[in-house]
């Protein structure tokens, strides 16, 4: 569905964050990306989403090479993402943060605002219903009118998930969705993801919470120093000796 082939990323300043990494997110599955801090997981998400240009390698979306297409193009084809450090639209209200993600809003076109006010209004109402359903699920509806910048850290992460889902995405990349989120809420996210996967949504998940990875991921890649160390089912991967030394060294 979405794959990166042999991608390398060299950041300004010369640091090689990815050195020929390949991953494949299978359709309708949850694919995990784990590895130590600085392994290049978020960078790889950036490459998949089109925000980071690889120096080498190729990204394919539904079989088509999309390396030269930017994030806007990819998002329009159903690729949504959340960020590791929440990037809420701080001065917009919580509900506005979600509504702004609705694709193809006629109300965002000046001509329609003039000529098709009724359609714009109906579309807005429909969007609001959907945004409400999403926000109620993570208990943020009560803060719908608060500026998103005033939310707590965990609430911002939840808001980002709602915003990504507002796109009706076919693929969702979630970068550490559980960071700073309380345990009951995490199990709700897990249920949420599982339900969407049932409906055919593809997920990529970067996570340090191994319980969540175990519960969700059909397939796991282990990244270290910009390379894929190993891959496979979570239980197999986690007992791998290389992984133990690269990642879980302290516990092993």
């Amino acid at each position: 569905m979405l794959e990166a082939n042999d991608v390398s990323v060299i950041y300004e300043g010369g640091f090689t964050a990815l050195a020929g990494a390949s991953v494949k997110l299978a359709s309708g599955a949850v694919t995990g990306l784990i590895g130590p801090n600085g392994a290049g997981k978020s960078t790889l998400f950036g490459v998949l989403a089109g925000a980071v240009r690889p120096a080498k390698g190729e990204v394919r979306l539904a079989g088509e090479a999309v390396t030269h297409h930017g994030p806007v193009w990819r998002a329009r084809r159903g690729l949504a993402r959340t960020f590791q450090l929440s990037r809420e639209l701080a001065s917009l209200s919580v509900v506005e943060n979600v509504l702004v993600a609705k694709p193809q809003m006629r109300g965002e076109r000046l001509m329609s605002l003039l000529l098709a006010r009724r359609a714009v209004w109906q579309e807005e109402e429909a969007g609001l219903d959907k945004a409400r359903a999403l926000l109620q699920r993570v208990d943020l509806w009560k803060l719908a009118d608060a500026p998103a910048g005033t939310l707590s850290g965990g609430q911002k992460k939840l808001l980002e998930i709602c915003r990504a889902l507002m796109l009706d995405p076919r693929i969702v990349l979630m970068d550490e969705p559980s960071a700073g989120v309380n345990p009951t809420r995490i199990s709700e996210i897990v249920e949420f993801v599982q339900a969407l996967r049932q409906e055919g949504t593809t997920f990529g998940l970067v996570e340090h919470n191994m319980g969540m990875v175990r519960a969700l991921c059909d397939h796991v890649y282990v990244l270290a120093e910009g390379r894929v160390l190993t891959q496979g089912r979570f239980d197999d991967v986690i007992t791998d000796e290389q992984v133990a030394s690269a990642y879980l060294g302290a516990q092993a």
């Binding site: 989403a49 949504a80 701080a90 001065s91």
Partner: peptide
């Protein structure tokens, strides 16, 4: 507020 987010939303 954040042009990068708007692009990630496909706009």
């Amino acid at each position: 507020d954040d042009p990068g987010v708007v692009e990630a939303l496909g706009k």
